[in-house]
Amino acid sequence: MPLAEIPLCVWRKRSQTFVFRGQTIRYWMTGQGEPLLLIHGFPTASWDWHYLWQPLAQRYRMIACDMLGFGDSAKPANHRYSLLEQADLQQALLAHLQVEQPVHILAHDYGDSVAQELLARHYEDKIEIASCVFLNGGLFPETHRPVLMQKLLLSPLGWMIGRAFTRDALVKSFRQIFGPLTGPTESELDDFWSLVDSNHGPRIMHKLINYIPERREQRDRWVAAMQRGEVPMRVIDGEVDPVSGAHMVERYRELIPDADTVLLPNIGHYPQIEAPVHVLKHYLAFRDRFALPPRKVACS
């Protein structure tokens, strides 16, 4: 049975705001239970999780934000965007919500890199991470295969490419990375574009893309954290994604001891949009593996 979508207009109405270093950040929270932090990818926003939002909220306290420079959050033009700052933002959001217990993470794409930074900080005693699940993303710079638009944004003409970025350019990029039978609808493309275009987003895309070289700088530190093996991890990956599909999972299995991986056949870069039922099933199976048994209650 397909999962019900949350229309973007409804999603936006449910948002709240807090201020991070002088910038307004949109965030969402619902549900009860152990905190589950969802971290979105580039160039989209937290609405990416809308199919999974309500089903997961039946078991967990759901938390997500549009990161700085993304979605409906602030997109300052004169700012040096950084994955490390985005990790600071996630910790600031948790502090704002007074979350004190260990946090579970479900991340995608750019969000995978933020999650890797948080995982490294876990081993530096700066945050407590209870588990981490990665969807398609550039976990290893050596396996990341950027699309043409990303390469152009990284070039000296990136500022010009970003300002000229249109819905048509987004559609062209997305058609390269979604699965052959699971491409986004025109309505979904309208919504994705609305989030990219919000707050003059295209003018900063060349600044956001600096996450690619930043990944290379942090690579060894992040991989070392993943290899520690003390925090349960799983990869749920769309197999035919040309950016970070089966080839990335193969590298993950080479580098990570006792690698826990799931490949989704014929699914591309956005499994939470393309195959949310399968992502939900594999995520809950992962969590059920190490969930604490229910307490026995004595009856008299």
Rank of each mutant, 00 (worst) to 15 (best):
K126S: 09
L68Q: 09
L264E: 11
E254L: 12
E274G: 05
R121H: 07
G201I: 09
C299W: 07
G33C: 08
V277R: 11
Y211F: 15
F140S: 06
G22F: 07
H282L: 01
K296S: 10
V10H: 10
E142H: 10
P156E: 02
D220Q: 12
I39S: 02
C9H: 15
R203C: 08
H79C: 07
S155E: 06
A74T: 05
V114P: 03
W53K: 09
G138T: 02
I209V: 15
L83E: 00
A291F: 00
R287W: 05
A74S: 15
I267G: 01
E254R: 13
I39H: 01
K296I: 04
E5H: 05
S15H: 15
R26D: 07
K13F: 00
L38H: 10
V231A: 09
S131I: 07
W53T: 08
W49M: 03
P180T: 04
L157P: 00
P293I: 01
R80Q: 14
P35V: 02
P102E: 06
L255S: 00
E85R: 12
L52S: 11
G41P: 08
V223E: 11
Q23P: 00
L153A: 09
V133L: 10
L280N: 01
Y51E: 04
G201D: 04
I177P: 02
I105Q: 05
T17K: 11
M233N: 04
G33V: 09
I63R: 02
W28T: 03
C65G: 00
G162T: 07
Q227I: 01
P202C: 12
H206M: 03
L84Q: 12
E217L: 13
G245V: 01
M233L: 14
S187D: 14
R203V: 14
K151V: 05
L152C: 03
G183N: 09
